[in-house]
Nucleic acid binder design. Structure first.
Lengths: 347, 347
DNA sequence: CTGAAAGCGCTAACAG
DNA sequence: CTGTTAGCGCTTTCAG
């Protein structure tokens, strides 16, 4: 007899339950049963069906399946930048927790572009994801809220929730900014620089608040004691460029720089090295996140640590538990922690 | 009149085209038209429909859509480890190319676990992705091939294709391993260590071949000139542990170590630093990948550079073009490049 | 334990 | 230009 062309179905299309049923000599209902409730099917029948499945190399069509029976074991996540170790660590946390419940992650990065973020969120929704974990940029909160109205679980990540019933996992960034600033002040620095991203990003705005509050609490006038540099991009090149602009600016050069994250600090350190400016001698540097490589740099980087993996894990956990357990929205806030290293010695 | 509860449909379910049609006073066909061919709908009608869509905050159901009309603008990618900058850089390349054509990426990491990889691949297929980009681990090649039989485009990434008609993007890892070894030998080292991952991973096996070939080409006997350490994990902790085991081993300690990737080298350097062993004085170190932070480490790391972003971009490009253009399978191979830095000075 | 039949939400003919 | 209608592949009653 002619061997069935595997996978090539009858007519080049993917084989369906109907094809399997026909080949096994049973009805589609039975096929569906062996797929979903094998224990309810008599072993001989089941064997026949399984043989047919293998023979045709049949693969379930998730779309049809979901269309009929609702749920789908997928959650979507949008982060700001997948190339930043801060977010990848979080993604690992999310993925690991999701894997426990056989859920799958659709991961996208918005590049801090609200439009791109919106596109991804809409796509997630169209695909019927069970839930969404998002690091929202400004403006996308409304979209997220609307999705929730429509029954999609939402957890905010790296963002405190503005609503009592919207779960979130965050870190106190105002406190983190303050921590970094206090440290620099304690080291005797009085003229600081802050390489920051757009204030439309909550993280940037909050860390800045922490800086400002600390400065004024110490009786310093930000106008004279702080130089702010707006970064073009929150990556190493952005930090490199920002540091060069800082050094080229008019007026007295600060003796210490606080970078809004470690990747950016890496770039700043690179510029400093290329320009032959010693760290921390001529310029102290503090980063934020405490990513894996922070303590391995030429001058180990002082940084504000965030529990990234745990944050991701927790967010996923909240999302998954939300279905099964009570619906009280948790709002977890982790505390940042200053890790002092060589890059921020005294002035 | 009572405001329609947005999103809460008639009965708590997501609103469908039927709901929209009813509210707008048109037929579902017309709704479908404004969704897919708005230019074929009279402006007034279109306006009514659009108003209804907004009113109900209707969101298309991608499952139903795909079920009916086949294709879906999604491609899946499985990489070995999403936390490794090497793979994230590639992912960025993939994502950026995909975004150009409005495609979306489902990204998963297999953790070098073939079972997990298989699960993800099956899931992709069930979801009807248009194509798959995979960094296959051993054994999964068959799965990939089977998927291709069933009409899913497959591109191998960081893996040379074993089949003439299966497209792939790779780097010459044998050459890369040779490059690193040649360099170390040229520096006068004669006792080398190789911190490598499992040989079931093609990258590891190939780089090892490069090492071996170079050694014998120079008349050295691997048995006496090379110590191989099998890493438990291809991350920083794995490298740290591997280096400690190397130093604790019997026999003369090598004077140079080649690490199978940079993340691993980072860990090895950490161990060396903690143990107060100078680099490159007492131990030279060479990594692989040349990730972003390689040149910023305490001792800038000599490494074998791979064009990660470009690799990802190219793979996605091949996948996308495969649909539209001719079907000749390309097999791109990039050349690795040695980047010498301080970590590998002379013995 | 198995079969028959309805229908999930959408798109694509085809009529009008 | 708009309406009607027939499925896409699957799960799920409901009978037998």
């Amino acid at each position: 007899m002619a061997a069935t062309q595997p996978g090539t179905g009858r007519n080049g299309k993917r084989p369906s339950v109907t094809d399997v049923a026909r080949l096994a000599g049973v009805s589609v209902g039975t096929v569906s049963n062996v797929l979903n409730r094998p224990e309810n099917v008599a072993p001989p029948t089941r064997a026949k069906v399984e043989a047919a499945i293998k023979e045709l190399s049949f693969v379930r069509n998730a779309s049809a399946r979901q269309l009929r029976s609702g749920e789908l074991n997928t959650v979507g996540a949008v982060v700001l930048d997948i190339a930043n170790p801060f977010f990848t660590e979080m993604a690992r946390g999310i993925e690991d927790r999701l894997a426990q419940d056989e859920y799958t992650l659709m991961l996208c990065s918005s590049d801090e572009n609200p439009e791109r973020e919106g596109r991804y969120l809409r796509l997630f929704e169209e695909h019927g994801v069970r839930g969404v974990i998002a690091t929202p940029s400004e403006g996308s909160l409304d979209t997220l809220l609307a999705m929730r109205e429509r029954g999609i679980d939402v957890v905010l990540l790296d963002h405190t929730s503005p609503l009592p019933d919207l779960p979130s996992v965050a870190v106190d960034d105002v406190g983190g900014g303050a921590l970094a600033t206090e440290h620099l002040l304690a080291q005797g620095h009085t003229r600081l620089a802050f390489l920051n991203g757009p204030l439309t990003l909550r993280q940037c705005a909050d860390r800045r608040d922490g800086v400002m509050q600390t400065l004024t609490a110490h009786g310093l006038d930000p106008a004279t004691s702080l130089v702010e540099i707006a970064l073009e991009a929150l990556n190493a090149d952005g930090g490199d460029d920002g540091m060069r602009r800082l050094l080229a600016a008019d007026g007295p050069t600060p003796t210490a720089t606080f970078c809004v994250n470690d990747v950016t600090a890496l770039g700043a350190l690179r510029a400093l090295r290329d320009l032959d400016i010693s760290v921390p001698g001529e310029m102290a540097v503090v980063g934020y996140d405490d990513v894996m490589f922070a303590n391995m740099l030429a001058t180990p980087l002082t940084s504000v640590r965030q529990p990234m993996y745990k944050m991701g894990w927790t967010a996923a956990d909240m999302l998954l538990r939300r279905g099964s357990e009570d619906l009280t929205a948790e709002q977890v806030e982790f505390e940042p922690e200053l890790v002092v290293r060589a890059s921020s010695g005294p002035a």
